[in-house]
């Protein structure tokens, strides 16, 4: 599904990613762990197409297409979804208006009919229940005044609505208490199936107790320095990142 080959990227002329190779097959869940500054967030931003992240080498292929050639909105319509670590707050634009515009943009790209207000309401209600989100968050401005947990629920709600092929979760566990973490993880797990892939980026092992990955990669100095099964996360938790860095 997603094939990253020898990827180099820089921010403000500083090289952050120094040759990443990663293959994620359909239905697989991969986790990327690594210390602060190892390039985790840069990788997710490069995948989503954020301005200011310059790819200087290598390639990213998504379902056989060159992902790096696509504008961010095309990537989203093609089925890439980045759940942000810090989702933007947007005053004046209501959450439901935004979600409907988003869903319809993706639907029409897929050749599906656009939803009217009633259909959207029905679908969004059902998904909101899944992430235990109170109704009033729909009519409020996007993420404005939302708690940390509410923002992350909103991210997962969008994921549930858009049903992407490839979900990238960027430190989705940061700033969450244990209850919010459970709700968010359940939402993500509900989306797991044999065709949908996931890339879970996290600093801590905690999230991976809820979303158990097929593979764990350790990112350090802009490269993947070790790959293993889900047990690697536990080992990291126990020994710390110094253990990996010392051994490479």
């Amino acid at each position: 599904m997603l094939e990253i080959k020898n990827l180099f990227a820089q921010v403000d002329d500083k090289e952050i990613l120094s040759g990443i190779d990663l293959n994620i097959g359909a239905g697989e869940v991969h986790a990327i762990m690594g210390p602060n500054g190892s390039g985790k967030s840069t990788l997710s931003n490069v995948l989503a197409g954020r301005a200011g992240y310059e790819v200087t080498g290598g390639s990213v292929t998504f379902e056989g297409k060159n992902l790096l050639d696509m504008d961010p909105e095309i990537r989203a319509r093609e089925g890439i979804f980045l759940a942000f670590q810090y989702p933007a707050e947007i005053p004046g634009v209501s959450n439901d208006y935004f979600l409907k515009a988003s869903l319809n943009a993706v639907r029409s790209h897929r050749g599906e009919s656009e939803l009217d207000a009633m259909d959207f309401l029905e679908i969004s209600r059902e998904k909101m229940k899944q992430v235990e989100m109170p109704d009033d968050l729909m009519s409020r401005a996007i993420n404005e005044g939302f708690s940390g947990g509410e923002k992350k629920r909103n991210e997962v709600l969008q994921m549930l609505l858009l049903e992407p092929k490839m979900c990238v979760l960027d430190e989705t566990d940061s700033g969450l208490d244990i209850d919010a973490l459970r709700v968010v993880a359940e939402g993500v797990n509900a989306l797991r199936n044999e065709s949908r892939s996931m890339l879970v980026i996290t600093h801590y092992q905690r999230l991976l107790e809820y979303i158990v990955p097929d593979k764990v990669h350790v990112l350090s100095g802009g490269r993947i320095v070790r790959t293993g099964g889900s047990e690697l996360a536990l080992e990291l938790e126990e020994k710390g990142y110094g253990w990996i860095e010392a051994s490479t």
């Binding site: 197409g49 909105e73 004046g92 935004f98 858009l162």
Partner: peptide, 23 residues
């Protein structure tokens, strides 16, 4: 970028955000 990353085209995103500013 946030709206783009949810599939909304850049110009449409600008219109939505301007609309929001006025709202």
């Amino acid at each position: 970028f946030y709206l783009q990353s949810r599939g909304i085209g850049r110009n449409h995103a600008k219109q939505i955000l301007t609309r929001g500013f006025i709202n």
